[in-house]
Design a protein around this nucleic acid. Structure first.
Length: 460
RNA sequence: GGCGACGUAGCCAAGUGGUUAAGGCGGAGGUCUGCAAAACCUCUAUCCAGGGGUUCGAAUCCCCUCGUCGCCUCCA
């Protein structure tokens, strides 16, 4: 059975049938107006896993992800920080890349920006005007929803049912409450770009339609984003694109990633209730963070919790132990390893079921840790585990930062001293050292090869 | 009000028609260890928000109720 993907457009889980040799995937990226938070991390890790699974299943993928580098919020942030909107965008775009590199998120093949495609956006808006889908009112350009009969196909809203709650006070010149801005005339002091309708800047949705067309073409395979973008953003994107190109569906598969919740509301910059990825990575192993994010199916809402991160930190150890063993040459067949991989493949193909797949990883890790002496099977099992870890993108190769602490030389010294005491069989003294270190958050592990230490994950 | 997502053990979470309901964390016991830690082994949901219904058979399909969240447009 092949890959199946939940598709907001069809309202079902659909079998994935590629349109060509390469899977085209567009992801609504972030507005770089502050450091990315855990909600962003979840979205981009989820999308990263989708891409890795496509590639694992033998597809080539072309992944494009935008930055909305100019909008009301970047302008507001620029004023707050006393820098230009460009500087805001640059600063937080860098922050984005840092966080994503730590989480082992593969870079997209292309990162278009609004400012980078401005002239194409103007052309696109002009095209919609020419085709009769948009009208101009005093420097503003509006998309006329009434001209596009399929409006609401993604969000399942109809004019009668879902639109009743929209604002009643129309902006000047707007013909229908549902109409939305393609181009907004500049207010004094705002950044603006020239257009046939005067100085202004693009509306919120048009940049994505333009960028998709510029980078991937008139129809794409996969369009992903957060669940909060279904309406109006993705709905409007579809309207613009299908009106412009006449090609439908604009995107064939629409997987939407559930939101990260904190205190029973979505984590969002605008709600001031977020935890940045940077902060989380300061306290937790990146592999644990990624594991934590993949432990919930991407479509379900996810409650952010430190307990979950602590739990994931403990879990990751089992995986690391099995993953990091020395390499023995693999010889012969290992039916058990093959069976585990089959289980893994089936789960991963079924709408990117990472929580289910992680169950297989732990089963595999236990098999490896159990049979460390049984060389051929262990090698095959470990190879299978490495394959799975690669598909999920868990950064198990990366050392947790603990041993690079500035306290490390002193802890090493204490451990060394204790080892000497142990040789003398001075148990009372050596145990006291171990207990005192434990109180300070340093855990000692004795083995025939010597004594290793690590920081407790519970330290605050 | 409309549309959508969700409600499975102490916590997190797979499973969406059929033998014993994955896995992780936590907990209990054991092996190992000078004692620990780590690792490994065993145990830890007669039951899937509640109530009806369909079926030989449902956590899984249908209806209703309750609860949580998201979206409802140039955005606080």
């Amino acid at each position: 059975m092949g890959l199946r993907i939940s598709n907001t457009l069809s309202g079902r889980k659909d079998e994935f049938i590629p349109s060509g040799e390469t899977v085209s995937m567009y992801v609504c990226g972030m507005t770089p107006k502050f450091h990315p938070h855990v909600g962003h991390a979840r979205l981009f890790v989820a999308v990263d896993v989708m891409r890795r699974i496509f590639e694992y299943r033998g597809y080539r993928v072309r992944h494009v992800q935008n930055f909305t580098d100019i909008d009301d919020k970047t302008i507001a942030r620029a004023q707050a920080e006393g820098i230009t909107p460009e500087e805001v965008a640059r600063k937080y775009t860098e922050s984005y890349f840092e966080s994503m590199a730590s989480l082992n998120v593969l870079p997209a093949h292309e990162y278009p920006t609004v400012t980078g495609v401005m002239s194409r956006i103007v052309d696109y808006v002009q095209g919609l005007v020419d085709k009769g889908f948009a009208y101009v009112v005093e420097g503003d350009v509006w998309f006329e929803v009434g001209k596009f009969p399929d409006y609401g196909q993604l969000s399942k809203r109809t004019e009668e049912s879902g639109m009743v709650g929209v604002r009643k006070d129309l902006e000047p010149g707007k013909r229908d409450p549902r109409d939305f801005a393609l181009w907004k005339s500049a207010k004094p002091g705002e950044p603006s770009w020239p257009s046939p309708w005067g100085e202004g800047r693009p509306g919120w949705h048009i940049e994505c339609s333009t960028m998709v067309r510029e980078t991937l073409g008139d129809q794409i395979d996969v369009h992903a984003g957060g669940q909060d973008l279904i309406f109006p953003h993705h709905e409007n994107e579809i309207a613009q694109s299908e009106a412009y190109t006449g090609c439908r569906p604009f995107a064939r598969y629409w997987p939407h990633v559930g939101l990260v919740m904190t205190d029973n509301e979505k984590m969002a910059h605008s709600l001031m209730n977020f935890t940045t990825i940077h902060d989380v990575l300061g306290k937790y192993d990146p592999a644990a963070v990624r594991l934590y994010l993949l432990q919930v199916h991407y479509r379900a809402p996810m409650a952010f919790s430190e307990d979950g991160l602590v739990s994931a930190t403990r879990s990751i150890r089992t995986l690391k132990l099995a993953y990091g063993g020395s390499d023995e040459p693999t010889e012969g067949e290992c039916p058990e390893a093959a069976a585990l991989l089959v289980r893994f493949d089936e789960l991963v193909e079924d709408d990117f079921n990472t929580p289910g797949a992680l169950g297989v990883l732990f089963d595999t890790a236990h098999e490896v840790n159990r049979g460390a002496a049984n060389v051929p099977e262990t090698a095959a099992l470990r190879a299978a585990l490495r394959t799975m870890v690669g598909v999920l993108g868990l950064p198990l190769d990366v050392e947790a930062p603990s041993n690079s602490s500035s306290a490390a030389p002193f802890i090493d010294l204490l451990v060394e001293t204790r080892s000497a005491l142990r040789v003398e069989r001075q148990w009372a003294m050596s145990d006291r050292l171990r207990d005192r270190l434990a109180e300070l958050g340093v855990i000692l592990e004795d083995s025939p090869r010597g004594t290793a230490w690590r920081f407790s994950e519970d330290r605050t």
